[in-house]
Simulated scan of single mutants.
Amino acid sequence: MTSTTPAGSDPAPRPKRRTFSPEYKLRIVAEYDAAPKNEKGAVLRRERLYHSHVKEWRAARDAGALEKLVDQRTSPALIATLMLAPGLPAGEAADPGQGAVTAGQ
């Protein structure tokens, strides 16, 4: 029995994976962390993401990997507002090169 479709044409091509920019990842992690507990799922549904995305992106942010990927020339305000060190209260940003800096220093 032979196939009626030519060998080169695929009836359902594979979907492409989504790619996320470092700015997007930082924005989503900050939005997710700032959301009240009962609204975190809404953020994930709206963006069609899984909690595992946020966990991986938060770990990368905390390790400093995401801040190195963001274009410093075009996004300095984004880095300053979204790069919060773990354990610091809101509004006290971390200095990527010097460790955590408190608001009073």
Rank of each mutant, 00 (worst) to 15 (best):
M1R: 09
T2H: 11
T2M: 12
T2R: 14
S3C: 11
T4R: 14
T4H: 12
T5R: 14
T5L: 15
T5E: 15
P6L: 05
P6W: 04
S9W: 08
S9F: 12
P11K: 12
P11Y: 09
P11H: 13
A12T: 14
P13Q: 03
P13R: 01
P15E: 10
R18C: 05
T19W: 06
T19S: 13
T19D: 09
F20M: 08
S21N: 03
P22S: 08
E23D: 13
Y24I: 08
K25T: 00
L26G: 03
L26S: 04
R27F: 11
A30L: 08
E31Y: 08
E31C: 07
Y32Q: 00
Y32P: 00
Y32I: 01
D33N: 15
A34M: 06
A35N: 01
A35Y: 00
N38R: 12
N38Y: 10
N38C: 09
E39S: 12
E39A: 14
K40M: 03
G41K: 01
G41M: 02
A42E: 10
L44G: 01
R46Q: 06
E47H: 09
R48H: 11
R48E: 11
Y50Q: 15
H51Q: 12
V54P: 02
V54K: 02
K55T: 02
E56W: 04
E56G: 06
E56D: 12
E56M: 06
W57P: 00
R58H: 03
R58A: 01
R61M: 15
D62F: 02
A63P: 04
G64R: 02
G64D: 00
G64P: 02
A65R: 14
A65V: 12
L66T: 06
L66R: 04
E67H: 10
K68C: 08
K68N: 14
K68G: 15
L69V: 02
L69E: 11
L69W: 07
V70Q: 05
V70E: 08
V70H: 04
D71M: 08
S75W: 13
A77Q: 11
A77V: 10
A77W: 08
A77K: 10
L78G: 03
L78D: 01
I79T: 06
I79S: 04
A80T: 10
T81F: 09
T81I: 07
L82G: 10
L82V: 09
L82F: 12
L84I: 08
L84E: 13
L84F: 08
L84K: 08
L84M: 13
A85S: 13
A85F: 09
P86M: 02
G87M: 04
L88E: 11
P89H: 05
P89V: 02
A90H: 07
G91I: 00
E92Y: 02
A94F: 06
A94I: 09
D95E: 13
D95T: 06
P96H: 00
P96R: 03
G97L: 12
G99N: 07
A100K: 13
V101G: 11
T102W: 15
T102N: 13
A103V: 14
G104A: 13
G104R: 14
Q105N: 07
